[in-house]
Simulated scan of single mutants.
Amino acid sequence: MTAIAVFCASRAVPDDYIRLAEDVGAAIAAGGDSLVWGGGHVSMMGAVARAAREGGAHTLGVIPTALVDREVADHGADELLVVDTMRERKQLMDDNAEAFLVLPGGVGTLEEFFEAWTAGYLSMHDKPVVVLDHDGFYAPLLDWIDRLAERGFVGAPALARLHRATTVTDAVDACRGGTPAR
């Protein structure tokens, strides 16, 4: 069993992305894994948690007090930790996760992705960091990262820490320690 932290949107998004989050939650549950997430009940955040719970997965949500109302805290979580700051939220998510899975999202998702990837590169953890790019959502970002590498700003060891997947199955497998094709 792997505790998978999922970073994703917490604001209104097209239904295709809600279905993607549901598929990820169902896959986490089907594999006997558990979910660690930002503790919100709305948008992709809520969809991944509901689907994981419906499939029998344990869910651990971590949400700062300031976002309890804004992100509508998911009181249906198996465990809901309410903390004072975003830094505490991220630390508890990091402490309780064995892998990080990045789904489509905005500024907060990107910040969480870069922090998890950087911490792995700096040997602060050895957990997989997986970007699920099922419809090209992250293609421009991943292309930019590749260009940074081509220009010498990102080295091969950092790139090796970043797993890229285009299917839910490959993404969840990568979280469990498998390596999807780049």
Rank of each mutant, 00 (worst) to 15 (best):
V107Y: 14
G56E: 08
A51H: 14
M93L: 13
E54G: 11
A52V: 13
G56I: 08
R53Y: 15
V62W: 03
A47H: 04
M86E: 11
N96E: 15
G39W: 03
E88N: 03
N96M: 06
G76S: 12
D78L: 00
G56W: 08
G106W: 04
Q91D: 13
E54R: 15
R89F: 06
H41Q: 12
R50Y: 11
H75S: 02
G39M: 05
V72T: 08
P104E: 12
A52K: 13
A49W: 07
R70M: 10
V68E: 10
L103Q: 09
A66P: 05
G76Q: 12
V102Y: 07
R87Q: 15
T85S: 15
G105D: 07
D69P: 03
E88P: 05
M45L: 01
R89L: 09
A47D: 00
G39S: 03
E54F: 11
D78F: 01
A52Q: 12
G105M: 10
A66K: 08
G38I: 08
H41V: 01
D69V: 10
L81Y: 09
P64Q: 01
R70D: 02
D95E: 14
R50T: 15
V83Q: 13
L60S: 04
M44K: 04
V102C: 06
V83W: 14
E88D: 13
V72L: 11
L81N: 12
R87E: 14
L67R: 08
D95N: 12
V107A: 12
H75P: 02
G46T: 04
A57T: 04
I63W: 06
